[in-house]
């Protein structure tokens, strides 16, 4: 055992330099060189101010915007310094109550829709930062958004269709709509009433 102590110490130090400092620094250098936007968080700027990241969800509550999924990250949701899910199990009273309240809220906000509500609209994501919602969820909200902005529903639906991202390579994951991009595009194309 004693004979192995010297190599053990040296190896620990050496690996710290090689894999702990050199490796991440090289990766950082290359990423900053080739993939600058992605490496820095895919940030979206408006008038010289960062307004968010296209990869991270943020809260929207006004009727003229599409609303993201419920979030368990931080006290108010969508806090990137406290990413997490609700961690409530399927037999949790707390989960049941939360979903029930969210369903009531969803029905109140979207009174024209009476069918079953898409699961993503009522459940909290794993990260609490889910930037996307399902197409079904977006289509239901389209009526409300159109009304709040004084637009025809078909206009808004058209916008959803143009921003819908299909499954990767046609079969991986799920089709989805990025809420922040959709809302920015709305503001961009149609002025708020």
């Amino acid at each position: 055992m004693l004979k192995q102590l010297v190599p053990a110490v040296r190896m620990t130090v050496l690996l710290t330099v090689l894999t702990g400092l050199v490796y991440p620094s090289v990766v950082t250098g290359l990423c900053q060189l080739f993939f600058r936007t992605q490496a820095n968080g895919s940030l979206i700027m408006k008038d010289g101010q960062v307004i968010g990241s296209s990869l991270l969800g943020q809260n929207f509550t006004k009727p003229e915007y599409f609303h993201p999924r419920p979030s368990a990250a931080g006290n108010d949701g969508y806090d990137p310094t406290a990413s997490q899910g609700s961690n409530l199990g399927p037999t949790s009273q707390k989960l049941y109550d939360r979903v029930k309240a969210a369903a009531a809220q969803f029905r109140k906000e979207n009174p024209d829709y009476t069918g079953p509500i898409p699961a993503d609209a009522l459940t909290a994501s794993g990260s609490g930062l889910d930037p996307e919602i399902t197409v079904a969820n977006a289509e239901i909200q389209a009526t409300r958004v159109a009304k709040a902005r004084g637009l025809s529903t078909s206009h808004v639906e058209h916008l959803i269709a143009s921003l819908t991202q299909d499954r990767d390579l046609g079969f991986l994951g799920e089709p989805r709509v990025n809420v922040l991009k959709l809302n920015l595009e709305l503001d961009n194309q149609f002025t708020k009433r």
Partner: peptide, 15 residues
């Protein structure tokens, strides 16, 4: 247009 199932704690993009 949506995946159904148990979406609590899951991300939309993965389903």
């Amino acid at each position: 247009t949506q995946m159904g199932g148990n979406m609590e704690g899951k991300e939309t993009r993965f389903g």
